[in-house]
């Protein structure tokens, strides 16, 4: 058995430390060591996107990142989207548009969509579809998810304007 490594990182803006085996994924570390179970494991090979988190400003499937790679990095998870009691516009839009059914893919979609809107405030429908193709959902047919992202983009632009 391999020995544990100490990892210092920043999660959702707060410093976080954990001990992990070198073979453990960032997803395992977030879920089992930091109790951040919002990121889900759907495939463990980077194809479903349910474990999507932000890492130093870009989105990654955390099942394909080792926990030790998070040393010194800044990680953003679905748990960090809301500001206190105020939901992020994407979270509100997902609820208002009924963009979730079982909800298991929702954290991945929210994190991926936030990364898109952070960089592109006015994406076309095609652009949203292309960007979110990294994440699989099986309940909604994506229709209401796309509409929710469009609604959130609109609202975020209005706040900025």
């Amino acid at each position: 058995m391999s020995s544990n490594v100490r990892v210092s990182t920043t999660v959702n803006g707060e410093p976080a430390e954990f001990l992990c085996e070198p073979r453990e994924s960032l997803l395992e570390c977030l879920r089992d060591k930091l109790n951040l179970t919002g990121a889900k494991e759907g495939c463990n090979d980077g194809n479903c996107g349910a474990c999507t988190v932000e890492m130093d400003g870009r989105i990654v499937t955390s099942c394909l990142v080792l926990g030790v790679e998070a040393q010194g990095a800044s990680i953003g998870t679905v748990e960090g989207l809301a500001r206190g009691s105020a939901l992020h516009p994407l979270q509100t839009a997902f609820l208002e548009q009924a963009a979730l059914q079982c909800g298991i893919c929702t954290p991945g979609f929210l994190v991926a969509a936030k990364a898109l809107l952070d960089h592109e405030p006015d994406p076309s429908e095609d652009r949203i579809r292309f960007w979110l193709a990294t994440t699989l959902g099986r309940c909604t047919g994506y229709d209401k998810i796309i509409r929710a992202v469009q609604q959130a983009a609109r609202e975020m632009r209005e706040v900025k304007a």
């Binding site: 179970t37 679905v78 809301a82 939901l87 979270q91 997902f94 609820l95 979730l100």
Partner: peptide, 15 residues
Amino acid sequence: DGADKVTGRALYGAD
């Protein structure tokens, strides 16, 4: 159950 499901707080079996 909406708030739980968009904040990552909803607990599924693997959680």
